[in-house]
Amino acid sequence: MIWSLLVAFGVFFILTNGLPPALVYAERKLAAGIQNRVGPNRVGPYGLLQPIADAIKLLFKEDVTPRGADKFLFSIAPILSFVPAALAFAIIPFGNYAGEVRLQVADLNVGILFATAIISLGAYGIAFGGWASNSKFPLLAAVRSSAQLISYEVVMALALVAMIMTYGTVRTEVMVLAQAVPLAETGPFAYLPAWGVFQQPIAFVLFVICCFAENNRAPFDMPECEAELVGGYHTEYSSMKFALFFQGEYIAMTTMSALIVTIFLGGWHFPGMDVADHSVGMGILTILVFMAKLLGVLFFYIWVRWTLPRFRYDQVMRLCWKGCIPIALVNIAITGIIGVLYS
């Protein structure tokens, strides 16, 4: 029991606190590659120590609170944006079993709904941060972001409804097991696993769009688009408060990627693996498979950010309410019809 807790929290801690600096480095290097630049290359070999140098710099910077700011809200806003993102990771099964140890922090019977509920609280960090700064650009960013997050949460929930109907459960580890079978008994599809992306391609596209929008990542980075809003909601932030926002954004990105992997890409399972094998070696292998898929999705995140231009705000809203929501509703109806016909 104590070992299972230690292993679960160890991996949880590494993924939520160790990954962001590595991601920042990866993002800068990949961006440089995409834009035909060199990227960080001065601190350490290949610039690998750059994230550590950045962290030390941020720790020693002066922590400025603007004179007109609301001190209490200004201070708790970075925490409010950091904590929900890390908390939602608790329900992700990042492996099968290592001996007796279940490789998941919390196995809740509300499963995936817990993640959506906790992620929806992340809007407060941006909203309070922008408002408490008592500055025009952060306030604009906060208002934009509240509307954007609320809108795309609807699409995300609707896309999830279709997936819950497909798997017949809301529990994440049962979802992974449901994807660990071939897509069809016979025929050409027998070679494909029953991953969510093959069963529900429309829901997959919608969910990925929502993940980008919920993370405020390009092309949906309305709350911090530097061309219009200086720095967006964290314009007035400095030092570790700024760093917490920054880290929160990358943890949210990791959590969303982990959700994509768990719901649509088979989780820790890879075709050919025996789900009943609970040995330690197999457990480590499942963690590695999960990590490989996770890094693949994170690479996709970074790739898209440095490839696509930013939406205009009205385009963001129109895409959500006139594009994604009708498609998601039709997708649910089709899923229901197919479910009734083939049950």
Binding site: A117, L121, I150
Partner: peptide, 19 residues
């Protein structure tokens, strides 16, 4: 559902309108 709808959606809308 309480967290998702009330704390996560409706109260965010309240803050949105206040702002």
């Amino acid at each position: 559902m309480q967290v998702l709808l009330y704390a996560g959606a409706i109260m965010v809308l309240f803050t949105f309108v206040i702002m």
